[in-house]
Amino acid sequence: MWLAIIGLILGIGMGIGSAIVFPPGYSAYVAIGILACLDSVLGGICANMRDEFEWKIFVTGFFWNAVLAMVLIWLGNQLSIDLSIAAVVVYGSRMFHNFSQIRRILLHRG
């Protein structure tokens, strides 16, 4: 778990350090993709701590959730429905859930 957090911090540092920017129109998609990925990673950490981690599920979930979220947003844009709200609510609540699971496991372990 600590390795994952170190990797995340290192990655953020590399991203900010680089001068790369996304094309302006895709910013909303990337944001929702990040949310989906964060949710997957938290789920992965949670599963890892419970020794239920399966890396195939994790890796496919990581990419599939992000792609699915972006496709949903795109579809929403075509139909003029703000589906990003749905994605934010679902992934947000799942992140909170995962956080509470991690906290519980840490408390029990301690």
Binding site: M14, I20, G44, I45, F58
Partner: peptide, 23 residues
Amino acid sequence: HYSIALTMICLLLGIIIGVQYNT
């Protein structure tokens, strides 16, 4: 082995977050 996969994915996610922050 799993930890390495998790770390690599987190690194990738971190880079995306960083670039998005820049954007």
